[in-house]
Design a protein around this nucleic acid. Structure first.
Lengths: 222, 222
DNA sequence: AAATATTTTTAGGTGAACCAAAATATTTTT
DNA sequence: AAAAATATTTTGGTTCACCTAAAAATATTT
C-alpha cells in the first residue's frame, strides 16, 4: 500500500530541495551529498522511488518529483517546520537547537496530529528561521525578501530569514542581536571586503562581514 | 556505540511489560505475541539484545532485562506517557486516540526534549489512562488502587485507571460517563452475573457488567 | 574528434529485521 | 519413564538500505 519509509521520505525531501534550488532535475551526486551517502546507494533508492511513482527518473538524467512525490515532500516540510515552531515557541528551545529534533519528528505519521498541532500553534506561516510553512493543502506563502547584501547604503529592511541554517551562524546572529522581525539599516558599504556598517532600530551600530550579509534575508522597507 | 533501533526499543518495552506482569522471565512466545511477530524473529533479536547487554538471555529459559535494559525500557514508557499527556491535554485528542501516535513519538531521541516536554506539561505523574509516569531518574509513583470489582456494596472509590486500554473500552467508559477522578459508589452487587449497581457522585445510577468492573481501577475512599 | 575527467550505474556484498519449515529442548500427559 | 504436546531454536530464505569497486555513460578538455 502507500506506506513510506523514513529513508524514502528523506530522499523525497532532498530531491525537492535540490530541484527547487537548482531549478532542474536533481543529480545523483547532489542527492548523495545532501544525504551523506554514496551515489550507488542513491541510484538504488531512485529505482525504488520510481517504482512507486514518486519520482520521474531517467538514467543519467537526474530526477524530479511526480505530483505525488511533491505532495509528500511538501507535507514533510510542513511537519518539520511546524515541529520547529513547537520546539521554540512551546518548549523554549533556541532556533539553533531544533533542526535535529524536527528531523525526527517530521517522520511521525498522522494527519490529525499535524492539523491539531498547527491549530495549537495558531497556524504559523513561518518557522523560527523565517522559512514558510505550507498550509494543509500544500500551498506556500511567498514573500519578497532579498539578501541583506543586496541593500544599498541608506536602505532599511526587516530581518525575515536566513540562508545558512547552521547553528554557528544562528548563534552568531544571536550574539549580534540580529533576530527575525528586527529592523536593520545599511549605513555604509565597504567595497574592499564587501562588509557593511548597519544600525538596529535602537541606533546600535555594527559592522557585518560579507558572509553575514550574504546569509541574511531582509524585506526592504524603504 | 550505544545507538538503539526502534525495533530493539520495542522489544525492550515488551520484555519489560511481560516480565513485570508475569513476575518472571519473559518467554519467547509471549514476546512474539505482544509484538505481533514470530518466535523465530524473537530468538533472532534476543541474541542481538543479549550481545548489547540489554537483556539476560539463556536459551529456552526466557529473558529478563539487565539494569541497562530496564533503564531504557523505563525511559521509553516515560516518553510514551508524557507524549500521551501532551496529545490529550494540549492537542485535544481523546484518551482512546493517542496510543498509536505515542507509540511513534516514544522513539524520538533527545533527553532535552523529554525534560522540556515534562516541564511544559507541569511534571504530570499519571498519563490520561491513569498509568504512572516514571520521573527523570526512572522512579515510579505507586498508588493503592484496586479493581472496582473488588469493592463491596456500600463502598466508595475514585476512578484512577484502566486495565483494558482498548479504544472500545475507553469509548464505552466515556459513554457511561466514567472518567478518571470521578467518584463511584457500589450500591448493590449481583452474584448471579457479577454485575453491580453503582452511583456517581451526582446520584446517577448505573448497572456495570463484570467485564467493566474487572477493567476499571479505583482508589477506595471509605 | 579523440582523449581525459567526471558522473552514474551495475555487480556483488553486508547487516538488520523479518519469515516458514525443520530440528531440537522442554514440559506435560499418560 | 515413555510418549505426546508444546515451546524454542536453527536453518535457510527475503527485503530494505546501505557499501566498495568495476563498468559504462556523459561531459569536458585538448
Amino acid at each position: 500500500m502507500h506506506t513510506i519509509s523514513t529513508a524514502e521520505e528523506n530522499y523525497l525531501k532532498a530531491i525537492f530541495t535540490i530541484s527547487e534550488k537548482e531549478g532542474k532535475a536533481a543529480a545523483t551526486n547532489a542527492i548523495a551529498t545532501v544525504l551523506n551517502t554514496t551515489a550507488a546507494s542513491v541510484t538504488d533508492m531512485l529505482k525504488r522511488l520510481a517504482e512507486k511513482d514518486l519520482i520521474a527518473y531517467e538514467k543519467y538524467r537526474g530526477v524530479l518529483l511526480t505530483p505525488a512525490g511533491e505532495r509528500l515532500a511538501t507535507f514533510l516540510i510542513r511537519k518539520h517546520r511546524l515541529w520547529e515552531v513547537f520546539l521554540v515557541e512551546k518548549l523554549g528551545f533556541s532556533w539553533d537547537e531544533v533542526h535535529d529534533l524536527a528531523e525526527q519528528l517530521e517522520h511521525i505519521h498522522g494527519d490529525a496530529l499535524v492539523e491539531r498541532l498547527d491549530e495549537f500553534l495558531g497556524h504559523p506561516r513561518f518557522d523560527p528561521h523565517g522559512d514558510p510553512i505550507p498550509d494543509a493543502e500544500g500551498r506556500w506563502t511567498y514573500r519578497s525578501q532579498v539578501l541583506l547584501g543586496a541593500l544599498d547604503a541608506g536602505k532599511r529592511g526587516v530581518i525575515t530569514g536566513v540562508e545558512d541554517h547552521s547553528p554557528a551562524f544562528l548563534q552568531y546572529l544571536d550574539h549580534l542581536g540580529l533576530v527575525l522581525g528586527a529592523g536593520i539599516t545599511v549605513l555604509e558599504r565597504f567595497p574592499y571586503d564587501q562588509s557593511m556598517r548597519v544600525s538596529a532600530d535602537d541606533g546600535t551600530e555594527r559592522i557585518l562581514s560579507e558572509k553575514v550579509s550574504q546569509n541574511l534575508y531582509v524585506k526592504p522597507t524603504i
